[in-house]
């Protein structure tokens, strides 16, 4: 279980997070939706300790990770897989080496076992035969899928996805969503997905949260969110432009 309590973060004068409160239930998939530039990626980076909040805390299995450092933090991190928004593939390594990386680093598995696992997970994301290409030689969508394979391969207990399907064609979006759901059923990780895929995201998540102007303004099941009375939520999921949004607020 991940519990985010009253999280504040500013960059210079720009207040990005203004008191985020959110509980991510164990063994469930929670989706965070919200306007572009609203601070979703920033929130995700706090959960793995890449950014330190100005105020507030994040409890993962009872430990406040905003206070942890060094080995202890690494111990928690090794149970978390992250798919970064930009993929963050190691461009000096082939696709194969990228996907094998978490296993080679964190486990003592046999070479052959790793080989099998890598081929299987590349197959799962539909990238058979791409093992020996370098990330720079792939399309944007392919890179996303390699990143996904890399995050899934170590079977971490918690997986954070930062827009795993943005930039993919509709068929791939569905198949990736199916992959996430299936793996989740298989070994029950706790998932956090940041996504702009509305309404597809509702099909695979157990809980949906809307991040708006630095706070979570609504949490609920996909059903509840879709039927919400909150005007902001309504407009957001229908894609209606409204006054006072982030983009115009800044300029």
């Amino acid at each position: 279980m991940i519990e985010i309590k009253n999280l504040y973060k500013s960059f210079g004068k720009q207040e990005v997070l203004r008191g985020v409160n959110l509980v991510i239930q164990e063994g469930q998939v929670t989706a965070i939706i919200g306007r572009s530039g609203g601070g979703k990626s920033v929130l995700l980076k706090h959960i793995v300790g890449l950014l330190k909040p100005d105020r507030g805390s994040i409890f993962i299995k009872g430990e406040d990770i905003t206070k942890l450092k060094g080995n202890k933090l690494d111990q928690i991190r090794s149970q978390i897989g992250v798919v970064f928004q930009g993929g963050a593939l190691f461009d000096s390594m082939t696709v194969y080496e990228n996907v094998a990386f978490p296993l080679r680093e964190k486990t003592k598995l046999d070479k052959n076992v790793i080989h099998e696992a890598v081929l299987k997970s590349l197959h799962d994301v539909g990238l058979d035969g791409m093992e020996y290409k370098y990330p720079a030689e792939l399309s944007g969508g392919m890179r996303k899928r390699v990143a996904l394979a890399r995050a899934l391969i170590g079977k971490p207990k918690i997986i954070l996805f930062d827009e795993p399907t943005t930039g993919l064609d509709p068929i791939l979006v569905r198949s990736i969503h199916k992959l996430i759901k299936n793996t989740q059923k298989q070994y029950g990780f706790t998932g956090l997905i940041i996504s702009h895929e509305i309404p597809e995201i509702f099909e695979i998540s157990d809980t949906v949260a809307l991040l708006h102007e630095g706070t979570i303004i609504e949490v609920g099941t996909p059903q509840e969110i879709q039927e919400s009375d909150n005007i902001i939520v309504k407009k957001f999921i229908k894609g209606i432009e409204q006054g006072g949004n982030n983009e115009t607020g800044k300029s």
């Binding site: 890449l50 690494d74 991190r77 930009g86 993929g87 978490p102």
Partner: peptide, 11 residues
């Protein structure tokens, strides 16, 4: 490109 972050996250 967040590769350093990715390393950090993989402990």
């Amino acid at each position: 490109t967040e590769q350093l972050d990715a390393l950090t996250v993989m402990a």
